[in-house]
Simulated assay, not measured.
Amino acid sequence: MRAGSFGKGVGVAAVLLFTLFPVWLMISTALNGRANAGSRTFLPEEWTLANFAFVFGEGGFGRYLLNSLIVAMGTVLAGALLALLAAVAVARFRFRFRTSVLVMILIIQMVPIEALVIPLFIQAKSLQLLNTLIGLVVVYLAFSLPFAIWTMRGFVAAVPVELEEAAYLDGASWGRMFRSVLLPLVAPGLVATSVFSFITAWNEFIFALTFMSQETNYTAAVGLRGFFGQHATDWGAVMAASTIITVPVMIFFVIAQRRLTSGLVAGAVKG
């Protein structure tokens, strides 16, 4: 029994080391004043915040972070609303080609993102959405909605219809029933899908790079590329910017942690 516990402890420690070591190396390099002087130590030789100051100052990274935040939050809010309404439609209403719609939602998820770059670029150009944050929001919605709709469908279908009928008998309208009965019950699913949408929009690089030709509209993922030079790379700035990029994701996870856990577990057994 002790040998088994010891083996489990070693396994957990190995997984934690494998997972956290890159994070520690990133933060250590960001705080190292000699990161670009060939430093190979795991601890900063010169503790400094100069790399962060350079990223926000000369690097103009604050603007990129703001653009990413606008795009990510726009994707989350619009995606949550559309996914919830679409999930209610496919879970509660009977209409022609209902099964075909669900199958098409799954098929869309199987298409590689790289295969859609050129078609979506041409479409965005015809709609005059290039070099706009709204254009990125629309594209990210197209990728996050299939997963969100499919997941939310399970949550909506798991809510007993009798609860909705009881609300109608008490004189509630459909809108009141939706706000007071259905929405609170499917809130964990909304959190789970919102986290997925946020990560998709926050970390995406290919479309943000392709759609944006003006530096002022760059997202954080594209702005990070500016610290890689043709003949040399500013590793201190790269790691500082990478550390900054991870902070909003960590904050978002901390805020949504409780509902995210219950939402993922419920989504695995419902529907």
Results as ranks from 00 to 15, higher is better:
32 N>R: 03
138 V>M: 05
87 A>V: 11
156 V>E: 00
192 A>R: 00
201 A>C: 06
119 P>A: 12
261 T>I: 15
46 E>A: 10
149 I>M: 03
123 Q>P: 07
123 Q>K: 10
78 A>Y: 01
173 S>F: 04
162 E>I: 13
40 R>G: 11
127 L>D: 11
20 L>K: 13
111 V>K: 09
74 G>S: 10
169 L>Y: 09
118 I>M: 15
67 N>D: 02
260 L>W: 09
249 V>N: 04
63 R>K: 15
51 N>P: 06
246 T>I: 13
231 H>R: 13
254 V>N: 09
95 F>N: 09
145 L>I: 08
256 A>N: 13
255 I>L: 13
197 S>N: 02
215 E>R: 13
263 G>E: 03
215 E>Y: 10
59 G>H: 02
157 A>C: 09
218 Y>F: 06
248 P>E: 04
205 F>Q: 12
162 E>H: 05
162 E>Q: 11
149 I>R: 00
52 F>V: 04
145 L>C: 04
76 V>M: 01
256 A>E: 07
241 A>P: 02
136 L>S: 02
22 P>E: 13
236 G>R: 00
102 L>T: 11
124 A>P: 03
212 M>H: 02
22 P>H: 11
80 A>I: 02
187 A>E: 04
189 G>V: 02
43 L>N: 10
211 F>R: 03
127 L>E: 14
46 E>G: 05
204 E>C: 11
89 A>L: 05
154 G>T: 08
158 A>G: 10
214 Q>G: 06
148 A>G: 02
175 G>P: 01
56 F>W: 14
135 G>T: 06
253 F>S: 08
106 L>Y: 08
248 P>N: 07
104 M>K: 10
138 V>G: 01
73 M>L: 15
251 I>Y: 11
205 F>G: 11
140 Y>H: 03
171 G>S: 07
174 W>I: 09
93 F>D: 10
54 F>T: 05
33 G>C: 06
27 I>C: 12
199 I>P: 01
194 S>D: 00
246 T>F: 14
140 Y>I: 08
249 V>T: 08
163 L>S: 08
80 A>G: 03
269 V>Q: 07
258 R>M: 05
216 T>V: 15
252 F>L: 04
242 S>C: 14
147 F>M: 01
116 L>V: 14
86 A>C: 13
210 T>Q: 12
14 A>L: 15
57 G>H: 06
96 R>L: 15
37 A>T: 10
87 A>W: 00
74 G>V: 06
130 L>W: 08
59 G>Y: 02
40 R>E: 14
30 A>P: 02
237 A>Q: 00
20 L>Y: 15
187 A>Y: 03
65 L>M: 14
244 I>L: 15
57 G>I: 12
257 Q>C: 09
26 M>T: 14
